[in-house]
Amino acid sequence: MYKPNDLILRTTTSLIAFILLGFAVYLLLAGHNSPGGGFVGGLVTSAAVILMYMAYGMETIAKIIPVNFRTVIPVGLLIAVGTGLGSFVFDVPFLSHTFGYFNVPIFGKIELATAMLFDIGVYLTVLGVTITIILNIANDQ
């Protein structure tokens, strides 16, 4: 494995990675009404993680994000399937979505949709898949 030692990359990464992560969360949350969504949000997050990996190496990543990305895949799938199954509780067909508008202090009127939950499932699955594939190929001897 090569050992990255690039001061400029490292310095900018610590800034850019956070911008990317913030942007990813924005994309995920805003996805229902403006460009974005779980899929692209997951990809942007993976891009941020991969950038950090390239700048700091595997050990550092494992230390600052103590998450096994393989387990993120089933968790995401479970959330997505669970959203679908949740429909049965309200006696409507599988994967029926609903939404409502709520008045929340500070934010004002916001929309909450069950589609959001499903999108979070998509987000986590895509994140887990991308990182699993790339980091495994990267760490292969």
């Binding site: 403006s34 969504g37 899929f39 939404f99 949709a113 589609a115 999108d119």
Partner: peptide, 14 residues
């Protein structure tokens, strides 16, 4: 029906 302005996203998730 989908409660979203982003048609692409509404198609994808709903």
């Amino acid at each position: 029906l989908g409660g979203g302005d982003n048609i692409v996203n509404v198609i994808l998730v709903d």
